[in-house]
Lab assay of single mutants.
Amino acid sequence: MEQGTVKWFNAEKGSGFIERENGDDVFVHFSAIQGDGFKSLDEGQAVTFDVEEGQRGPQAANVQKA
């Protein structure tokens, strides 16, 4: 798993970007967020995640709040 920080997340659209510790920013969709309840992330929040190849390039998967 990688570690990173939420660069921004739009709760209305359900997507945003995570700033990786090593590498380019990666797209995140709300469906990749693990946990119960409303799936959203806050700017500056620390997260851990896997990276998968999506239709438009790398994207975060199995996102967990650190």
Rank of each mutant, 00 (worst) to 15 (best):
G54L: 06
V47M: 01
Q64W: 11
G23W: 04
Q59W: 11
Q34M: 13
A46Y: 13
E21D: 11
S15D: 05
E12K: 14
M1T: 13
G16W: 04
S40Q: 08
V6L: 04
S15Q: 15
F38N: 07
V28Y: 04
F38I: 08
A60H: 00
S40R: 08
I18T: 01
N10G: 03
D50R: 14
F49I: 01
D25T: 11
E2I: 12
K7Q: 03
V63R: 00
K39P: 06
V26D: 02
F49Y: 06
R20T: 07
D24I: 12
S31Q: 07
Q3N: 12
K39T: 07
S40A: 08
N22P: 05
D25H: 11
I18C: 07
P58E: 05
W8E: 05
F9K: 01
E12G: 10
G57P: 07
T48R: 10
G44F: 03
G57M: 04
D25F: 13
R56C: 15
E12H: 13
E52W: 11
F30R: 04
G14Y: 00
G4M: 00
R20N: 05
G23F: 06
A46L: 13
F27Y: 10
F17C: 11
F9V: 04
L41I: 05
G4E: 02
R20I: 06
T5H: 12
D42R: 15
A46K: 14
G16T: 01
D25M: 15
V63I: 06
G23E: 06
G54V: 07
G37K: 06
F49P: 01
D36A: 12
K13F: 09
G35D: 09
F27P: 04
I33Y: 01
D50L: 13
D36G: 12
V6I: 09
F17V: 10
D24H: 12
F30D: 03
P58R: 07
N62M: 05
D42T: 15
A11C: 14
P58S: 07
E12I: 12
D42K: 15
G57E: 02
D42W: 14
N10T: 05
E21G: 09
G4N: 01
F9H: 04
G37E: 06
Q3R: 15
M1N: 14
Q55D: 12
A32C: 07
F27L: 04
F38C: 11
E19A: 14
N10H: 07
F17Q: 04
V51T: 07
V28M: 05
S31H: 07
S40G: 07
I18R: 00
R20G: 04
G16D: 01
F9P: 04
I33E: 03
K13H: 12
P58M: 09
E53Q: 13
V51F: 07
K65S: 11
Q64H: 13
K65Y: 10
V47F: 01
G14Q: 03
N22R: 10
P58L: 10
Q45L: 08
P58Y: 08
V6T: 04
E19M: 15
E19H: 12
F30N: 03
D25A: 08
A60L: 01
D50P: 00
N62H: 09
A66S: 12
R20K: 06
Q34D: 08
V28C: 07
G37V: 05
E12M: 13
Q55E: 12
Q34Y: 09
D24T: 14
G23K: 09
V63Q: 02
W8N: 06
V28D: 04
V51D: 02
V63N: 00
E19D: 06
Q45H: 08
D50T: 15
V6R: 00
T5Q: 07
Q59C: 09
K7I: 07
S31M: 05
G57V: 06
D36L: 12
F9A: 03
Q34P: 05
E21L: 13
Q64L: 09
F17P: 01
G14I: 02
Q59I: 11
Q55S: 14
F17N: 01
L41D: 01
K39H: 06
E43N: 12
H29C: 10
G54A: 07
A60N: 00
F17E: 04
G35M: 13
E53N: 12
F30H: 07
Q45D: 13
F38W: 14
G44T: 04
A66M: 14
S15A: 11
K13R: 10
R20D: 05
Q45G: 06
S15Y: 15
N22E: 09
W8D: 04
F38P: 09
V47W: 01
D36R: 08
D24A: 13
E19T: 15
G57W: 08
G14L: 04
Q64S: 10
A46F: 13
Q64C: 11
V26E: 01
E52K: 11
K65M: 11
V51Q: 04
F38Q: 06
K39S: 06
D24C: 14
D25K: 09
R20C: 08
Q55R: 15
A60M: 00
D25N: 09
M1K: 15
M1S: 14
G35K: 02
L41P: 01
N10W: 08
E52N: 08
N10I: 05
E12T: 13
G57K: 03
D50H: 14
D36H: 13
K65L: 14
F49Q: 02
A66T: 13
E43A: 15
P58G: 05
P58Q: 09
N62A: 02
G16F: 02
A66Y: 12
V47N: 03
A11M: 09
G37W: 06
G44I: 02
G23N: 07
V28P: 02
T48V: 10
I33H: 01
K39Q: 08
I18F: 00
T48E: 06
D36T: 13
W8G: 04
G54S: 10
A66E: 11
E2K: 08
Q55M: 12
F27K: 01
G14R: 00
Q34V: 14
I33V: 07
A66G: 11
A32F: 03
V28Q: 00
I18V: 02
G16M: 02
G14D: 01
Q3Y: 15
I18E: 03
G57T: 04
Q55V: 14
G4T: 00
N10Q: 05
Q64D: 08
G16A: 03
D25C: 14
A61Y: 11
S31P: 05
N22M: 09
E43W: 14
G54Q: 06
L41N: 01
W8A: 03
M1R: 15
L41S: 02
T5G: 04
W8T: 06
Q34R: 10
K65P: 13
E52T: 12
P58K: 09
V63P: 03
M1L: 13
E21Y: 10
G54K: 07
G4K: 00
E52D: 07
K7R: 08
E43S: 14
G57S: 05
F17S: 03
E21N: 10
G14V: 01
G44K: 06
I33K: 00
A46G: 08
A60D: 04
M1P: 12
F38D: 08
L41G: 05
G54H: 09
D25L: 15
K39I: 06
G44Q: 03
N10K: 04
A60W: 00
N22C: 14
H29K: 03
